[in-house]
Design a protein around this nucleic acid. Structure first.
Lengths: 132, 132
DNA sequence: CCCCTTTCCAGTATTAATTCCTAATAATAC
DNA sequence: GTATTATTAGGAATTAATACTGGAAAGGGG
């Protein structure tokens, strides 16, 4: 847990966070960039990356490191699980309680000091499934 | 499930698979490349990538798409879970039964046709933990 | 306000991992 | 063997993410 160092509230950061909160999807850095550019046409992609990183370090958003694909970002900060559609790539939140006590059990069994876990499903979303 | 199309048995493929079976670690493509090059000094990295992909499509090895980091490969083909050390990066197999019926339950709940899931833990391995 | 310090930004270059391309080569079928 | 066709080495291209740089904009004390 990195301590939340104090950081400035800049226009760019406000807009990034605000845009992310407006959507239920889990956009990639590039998608956030395109969203933000509508309001701040001169932002650079580097700024978006840097600030998504900073905001996630301060617990204001969640950086999702999905297996295999590029990172996605989520304004819902509590840890939760995801499904990813292998056809269209979209990611959906799951309403499922975090596995209880699983980290401690695994830690005891393998000797690691477990700091987190990730459970993700993949499959076809309803839209994509119907098209086959 | 892609059908196992027939493919040629080349020296490169034999050596790649053989080297992977010799280790219990989960090497990256680059590490496999270095291992293979000791026996076939002229292999190219592209060949290693292509064949790891083909061999995994044919069920001869497992391609691990770990969150955030580069891919790793595993000669143990049955689905199982992993822990990754956030300090040294190594990945270790977990002896833990696959979560029973979880895919069907999730599929029913969210409408996806679930084709797979991945559960991974992260933390400090015993070696790295001691050093802090 | 003004100055000083610090943090941040845009724009660009760079890195790292992986994939793609092509002529030459080697495995399998005939 | 010879023909057929997938596969290879080598390098170029692509993609996602990060690093660097000079300049701009807070914040804070007077």
């Amino acid at each position: 847990m990195k301590p939340a160092r104090k950081f400035r509230v800049t226009k760019q950061r406000e807009v990034i966070l605000d845009e992310l909160r407006k959507v239920v999807s889990h956009p990639t850095a590039d998608e956030v960039y395109r969203m933000v550019r509508k309001r701040l046409p001169r932002v650079s992609l580097g700024t978006v990356y840097r600030n998504l990183e900073i905001l996630s370090q301060n617990g204001l958003l969640l950086k999702l490191e999905m297996a295999g694909t590029q990172r996605r970002y989520d304004a819902t900060t509590a840890n939760h699980y995801h499904v990813r559609c292998t056809s269209c790539g979209r990611v959906v939140d799951l309403r499922m309680d975090p596995l209880p006590g699983v980290e401690r059990r695994i830690g005891d069994a393998c000797g690691f000091t477990i700091t987190g876990h990730r459970l993700e499903f993949e499959g076809l979303c309803p839209r994509c499934g119907r098209r086959n």
